[in-house]
Design a protein around this nucleic acid. Sequence first.
DNA 1: GAGTGGTCTAGACCACCCT
DNA 2: GGGTGGTCTAGACCACTCT
Lengths: 257, 257
Amino acid sequence: MSATRKPNSKEASPSGAELTTALAAQPLYAQVEAIFVDRIRTGVWRPGQLIPSEFELAREIGVSQGTVRKALNALAVDNLVERRQGRGTFVAEHTPDKMLFRFFNLFEDGGGHIEPDSQNTRMSIARANKEERERLKLDVGAEVIRVSRVRTHAGKPMIYETIVLPRQFFPGLVKEKTIPNTLYDHFQKEYGLTVSHGEERITAVAAGEREAKALEIAPGLPLIRLDRTMYALNEAPIEWRVSICLLSGAHYLVRLR
Amino acid sequence: MSATRKPNSKEASPSGAELTTALAAQPLYAQVEAIFVDRIRTGVWRPGQLIPSEFELAREIGVSQGTVRKALNALAVDNLVERRQGRGTFVAEHTPDKMLFRFFNLFEDGGGHIEPDSQNTRMSIARANKEERERLKLDVGAEVIRVSRVRTHAGKPMIYETIVLPRQFFPGLVKEKTIPNTLYDHFQKEYGLTVSHGEERITAVAAGEREAKALEIAPGLPLIRLDRTMYALNEAPIEWRVSICLLSGAHYLVRLR
DNA sequence: GAGTGGTCTAGACCACCCT
DNA sequence: GGGTGGTCTAGACCACTCT
């Protein structure tokens, strides 16, 4: 078995992470991508940080620059890094603006983006009930933080929102005096949790007593109900959120591709 | 100005399509991609057809195989071609299954995919009214085909749907005796129109008399209203569709990324 | 001017599919 | 066995940003 002309047979790299050698279950660039995701997830590379150049990373890991490039481009598609020609590659930093643009799909009928405010925010702690445990994949006895609030747009109540968070992921949240309007950037900055993806289930409901009161409308009016679960980089559920929305002069926008 | 060592200075290619030579406004792979999109749009390459290999295309156009590869991969992401290792690259063919999977976002609460049937399909022709002209970017006097139908799932009425099509794009549609349940594959097969993307605006409404009758429910119940516009490869609006949906045990699913 | 990512090329080998 | 797309490498030049 002469390894003379054999590429792809690099040995232990100084990076600490192992690359599969023979008969790789995954292609090299996918393994390299996984290494980089891990560095972001564990905080070795922090949000906003400039990471080493393609050539440096290639040398460190022991692959070609083209392979590192492919991995970094994949991370850019997933919004985990930002690449800027002439400057370098940066770990994506969540900001209120970017998160709103990315995950908030309500728009004015004219097309304008909606930037909601938060009112009457309440927070409590409890043992997770059955539904909460299922949604957040928690064990019996685990504690959750429950947040409820009304979100307004142009001075009018628009969304009545209930948010459930696994307490273990947000150790200091209970002690915070105020909860910020946009949560995901706060999660990343304060708790090192990058919200990476999720899903939202939409149904129509008639306003009940509680929603009618919160949204200052008559009971029975048709509302949109958004049932959302969001996941962290390690695929752990990190938030369950139910938003009851009064869409007057507004809509939920979905791009079909 | 010796062009000896200058790459990127290919001259007229035998493909008929022109590649920008110096100071390209767009990168080469994007120009190559545009050539390929054109071939699909104009029917030079037909749905389901095996297109030439990367090497052949590269030789024909006068670029490297890697550049053709980048263009084809971009087309695969846009669902315009399908690549199969060992077999070749095929122009994507719309099938009822694939179109339903791609653009139909209603699911059973258990997660199962919904495959709706069509009932009571009606069709008429008229001059487009103001709203139809705006939605479909039509001139005054242009004619549209209006289709209405009720879509059922598990034997129960689920969706009351109104579809408006520019008549000019569908010359023979009026004479068809029956309109198929899934339209987009029919558009591609019969009229050479590939539906490439669109947008859907979601609101909640209370059932009116007409919807209540069609869906066999009491007036006033909360329903989801989907307002959809779809576009062809040349960005021309090709369909305006309003679907009023009764979601009992079902929901509209959106992936957040 | 030095360094970065972006584009383009060329060539090698692998995995897969067909006949 | 021969052809296809998929992976990986190596090297060149371009466009952009900063100092």
